[in-house]
Amino acid sequence: NKFNKELQWATWEIFNLPNLNEEQVKAFIDSLRDDPSQSANLLAEAKKLNDAQA
């Protein structure tokens, strides 16, 4: 299933962003679980936040 692979990839990527704190990671993962179809958008937002906090 396409969404499942995207969800797994986005989850792994978010867990490995070095500049997000635990609460931010949890919030993004919760959002992914709530709406897996938004995984690409949520990953992009997480990466933006990660870069901003570098």
Rank of each mutant, 00 (worst) to 15 (best):
N1M: 02
N1F: 00
N1E: 09
K2A: 15
K2Y: 08
K2W: 13
K2P: 14
K2Q: 15
F3Q: 04
F3P: 15
N4S: 04
N4L: 08
N4R: 03
N4I: 07
N4E: 15
K5Q: 15
K5H: 14
K5V: 13
K5P: 05
E6F: 10
E6W: 11
E6S: 02
E6P: 04
E6L: 08
E6D: 11
E6Q: 05
L7N: 04
L7M: 07
L7H: 07
L7E: 11
Q8S: 06
Q8L: 13
Q8K: 06
Q8G: 05
W9M: 14
A10V: 10
A10K: 03
A10S: 04
A10G: 04
A10N: 04
A10L: 08
T11R: 06
T11H: 06
W12Y: 12
W12H: 12
W12G: 12
E13P: 02
E13G: 03
E13I: 13
I14Y: 01
I14D: 02
I14L: 06
I14T: 02
I14S: 03
F15A: 14
F15K: 15
F15H: 14
N16I: 06
N16G: 09
N16L: 08
N16P: 01
L17T: 00
L17G: 00
L17S: 02
L17R: 00
L17F: 08
P18I: 04
P18W: 05
P18H: 11
N19S: 07
N19K: 03
L20H: 00
L20G: 00
L20A: 01
L20W: 01
L20Y: 00
L20T: 00
N21H: 06
N21E: 07
N21M: 08
N21Q: 09
N21I: 12
N21A: 08
E22G: 11
E22Y: 09
E22F: 10
E22D: 12
E23F: 11
E23R: 11
E23I: 11
E23A: 11
E23P: 05
Q24K: 01
Q24R: 01
Q24H: 02
Q24Y: 01
Q24V: 03
V25R: 13
V25M: 07
V25H: 05
K26E: 08
K26T: 09
K26P: 00
K26F: 08
K26R: 13
A27P: 01
A27W: 15
A27D: 12
A27T: 14
A27H: 13
F28R: 00
F28K: 00
F28W: 03
F28M: 04
F28I: 05
F28S: 00
F28H: 01
F28L: 06
I29F: 05
I29D: 01
I29K: 01
I29E: 02
I29A: 04
I29N: 03
D30H: 08
D30P: 00
D30Y: 07
S31R: 06
S31A: 15
S31P: 01
S31W: 14
S31F: 12
S31H: 13
S31V: 08
L32V: 06
L32A: 05
L32P: 00
L32W: 02
L32F: 03
R33N: 15
R33V: 14
R33W: 15
R33A: 09
R33G: 07
R33F: 14
D34S: 07
D34M: 14
D34A: 12
D34V: 14
D35Y: 08
D35A: 08
D35G: 03
D35Q: 09
P36W: 06
P36Y: 04
P36H: 04
S37Y: 05
S37V: 07
S37W: 06
S37T: 15
Q38H: 06
Q38P: 01
Q38Y: 06
Q38F: 03
Q38V: 08
Q38M: 09
S39N: 06
S39Y: 15
S39L: 07
S39W: 15
S39A: 10
S39V: 07
S39E: 03
S39Q: 07
A40F: 13
A40I: 13
A40R: 10
A40V: 14
N41S: 13
N41Q: 05
N41V: 12
N41A: 10
L42M: 07
L42R: 06
L42A: 04
L42K: 05
L42E: 02
L42P: 00
L43A: 04
L43Q: 03
L43S: 02
L43W: 03
A44H: 07
A44Y: 09
A44R: 11
A44D: 11
A44G: 07
E45Q: 15
E45G: 04
E45R: 05
E45P: 01
E45W: 05
E45A: 11
A46S: 02
A46I: 03
A46P: 00
K47R: 11
K47S: 05
K47P: 00
K47F: 06
K47N: 08
K47A: 06
K48D: 08
K48V: 09
L49K: 05
L49Q: 04
L49F: 05
N50R: 00
N50W: 00
N50K: 01
N50V: 01
N50Q: 02
N50G: 01
N50A: 02
D51G: 06
D51V: 07
D51A: 14
D51E: 11
A52K: 12
A52Y: 10
A52V: 12
A52R: 10
A52P: 03
A52G: 12
Q53E: 05
Q53M: 12
A54Y: 09
A54N: 13
A54Q: 12
A54L: 09
A54P: 07
A54K: 05
